[in-house]
Nucleic acid binder design. Structure first.
Length: 572
RNA sequence: GGCGGAGUAGCUCAGCUGGUUAGAGCGGAGGAAUCAUAAUCCUUAGGUCGGGGGUUCAAAUCCCUCCUCCGCUACCA
């Protein structure tokens, strides 16, 4: 029994996430959390909404709400959807929590104390009409290179040339369209990442088992040009953690807040404190997960995220932790994902393209999505969602292979022996062969899960399901019963136990279906099948069960066509 | 431009510390069975492993080069 701390990248607050976001962080994190719990490990699985920053302020303004109220409401919406997908967070926190405010200010204070903070005066574009400083990409204008009239201050989307806001011709605010802009002097705090480069480099170099996708991005940033750059960690915004040095004011920084990417990863820690508070626990209870001087030295910490989040998790946040010179638990393994595309293009939150989490749940139960998304997780490269593929995979794997197995076994038993586990007969070589195959495959499945090879784990699980059909087909109890009813009883007894075993091993992928399979077997024994033979004798002769409703219904061609049309456009 | 990822059967992918006739699932074809959500199981046909060159007894696998797609490129998050 080991201890695992698991965090998923924090979903941003300004809207409902799409399936690409889900499969890139929260869903695989949930899969692994559920698996490790099932194996008896102690798991703390945390996630939260990432609430600060310009987009949140703008989204709130658009909704005509104060930003605090908007975020509180969107947090509840996201929490509800997460529950709908059966994401088994031990706590779903908020980066705007009091705990995170205090901890973010604490880190800033420590970093300043240790000489890792520098005050820098910068000149930034200020929009008088909007009464706010504009981040580069919130400034639009005509590209000096190609003449495109909607170029952004950081880059022209048309010719991909990198720009500086002052390069733009006829610059205007992307928020209001106002051209009443001026350049103002403003002071900000910078995290001296350059001073921590050596330590970060050594730390990254020690992570030889990380995916190339993860380390290559980190190394690029460490070594590109002059090496790792210092990073501004404050902003001139209203909505954020007020800049303070611990609990002291920070002279000259009044009215400013920390940059969202500074406080968001700190929420991984603060979320544990929120978890403790919400569950009547003490500080020591969460610190044993996060402080290596208070019991966290035996914790394995796993992070899950899309590839766009990698630099912040391999560099900025570790720099924050190291620079504090306090014994914080650092990440042991970063599992990063590529992107899921939608019908030939990208999923896009800003453009409303693709399927969003609430829409997905409105048309099908979460298990359908969980299975498809996890078995097609974009691990080695970007992957593609198409309705045809979704319909085909779900119908075949879930309805035909697994669901129908449950159906044929329970209905056959009910018709021939009643709704109890039959008592007669003995198992023979055919059953021993099945047990051997299941054992081999189960050990492979466990290996894939431990290695967080999500697709391979799904493939193996499917093969485990198929083995049940192969067994039934060759055993053919419907034929055997005519001449040797006792043996047929033994076969059915084993098959009913197989359903319970499948519920246990499938639960990380399809928790609801697993629950209904277990319920139908009239059982609540979720112990992991270390010994397959023994596990297949769990339900004793005479044990009552029920024939469940259809476990997975099929997606019809008409439904597929309708959804394909409905979700082809842009969500408004 | 730089860095990284990908390019393998109709489709989705595995294999890639070099080694017997290149694998799986889906889809196609044929068959078996009829317990079951017309669901299952078996057999089978499909590939000059993006192009070209090189190293080697031997390359999908290593090296060089070219082509195509995708991502990142540091003040959106």
């Amino acid at each position: 029994m080991a201890r695992y701390l698991i965090t998923s990248a924090l979903p941003y607050i300004n809207g409902i996430k799409h399936l690409g976001n889900l499969v890139g962080s929260q869903l695989p994190a949930d899969l692994i959390a559920r698996y490790l719990r099932a194996r008896g490990h102690e798991v703390l699985f945390l996630c939260a909404t990432d609430e600060h920053g310009t987009p949140a302020e703008l989204a709130a303004a658009k909704a005509g709400q104060p930003v605090e109220a908007f975020c509180a409401q969107m947090h509840e919406v996201q929490a509800g959807i997460a529950a709908g997908f059966r994401l088994s967070f031990d706590h779903f926190g908020r980066s705007s929590s009091p705990q995170n405010r205090a901890l973010t200010q604490h880190f800033a204070g420590k970093l300043a104390e240790n000489g890792y903070i520098e005050e820098v005066s910068e000149r930034q574009v200020f929009s008088i009409a909007d009464n706010r400083f504009l981040p580069d990409r919130y400034i639009e204008g005509t590209c000096p290179n190609c003449g495109y009239d909607k170029a952004r201050g950081d880059q022209c989307e048309n010719c991909t040339k990198q720009l500086d806001p002052t390069d733009l011709i006829d610059p205007r605010s992307a928020i209001s369209g106002s051209t009443d802009l001026e350049v103002r002097e403003t002071k900000h705090l910078f995290l001296r990442q350059s001073a921590l480069r050596g330590e970060l480099q050594a730390w990254i170099d020690s992570k030889t088992d990380w995916p190339i996708l993860t380390t290559s991005i980190a190394k690029k940033w460490l070594n590109d040009g002059d090496g790792l750059q210092d990073r501004g960690i404050t902003r001139d915004l209203y909505w954020g953690v007020p800049v303070k040095k611990g609990d002291q004011d920070w002279p000259g920084m009044e009215g400013k807040v920390f940059y969202v990417w500074f406080d968001a990863p700190i929420e991984y820690i603060a979320c544990a404190a929120e978890w403790a508070e919400a569950n009547g626990k003490t500080d020591a209870d969460w610190e044993r997960w996060w402080r290596t001087d208070k019991g966290a030295d035996d914790v394995t910490y796993l992070q899950f995220m899309g590839k766009d989040n990698v630099p912040f998790h391999t560099l900025s946040f570790p720099a924050t932790q190291i620079g504090s010179q306090e014994p914080w638990k650092m990440v042991d393994y970063i599992k990063s994902f590529n992107y899921l595309n939608y019908d030939g293009g990208q999923f896009s939150t800003s453009q409303g393209r693709g399927i969003f989490m609430d829409q997905a749940l409105s048309i099908l139960p979460s298990d359908y999505w969980r299975w498809w998304l996890l078995s097609h997780a974009p691990e080695s490269s970007d992957s593609e969602f198409t309705w045809e593929n979704f319909q085909g995979s779900v119908n075949k794997d879930l309805a035909d292979v697994l669901g129908n197995l449950v159906s044929r076994v329970t209905k056959f038993c009910r018709a021939k022996f009643g709704e109890v586990v039959p008592a007669g007969g003995q198992t023979g070589p055919r059953e021993a062969e099945l047990i051997a195959e299941l054992t081999t495959r189960l050990r492979a499945y466990e290996g894939n899960m431990q290695a967080m090879e999500v697709r391979k784990a799904a493939t193996e699980l499917r093969a485990i399901w198929v083995a049940g059909n192969e067994y039934l087909q060759s055993a053919a109890p419907w034929t055997v019963i005519k001449t040797d009813p006792e043996t047929a009883e033994a076969m059915v007894r084993l098959a009913l136990n197989l359903i319970r075993l499948y519920a246990v091993v499938s639960r990380p992928f399809i928790p609801d279906a697993a629950q209904s399979m277990m319920d139908a077997m009239g059982c609540d024994d979720w112990s992991w099948p270390e010994d397959v033979g023994a596990a297949l004798a769990t339900l004793p002769a005479g044990h009552a069960f029920t024939v469940p409703d259809v476990t997975f219904r099929k997606i019809t061609d008409e439904e597929r066509a309708e959804w394909q049309t409905r979700f082809a456009g842009i969500r408004t």
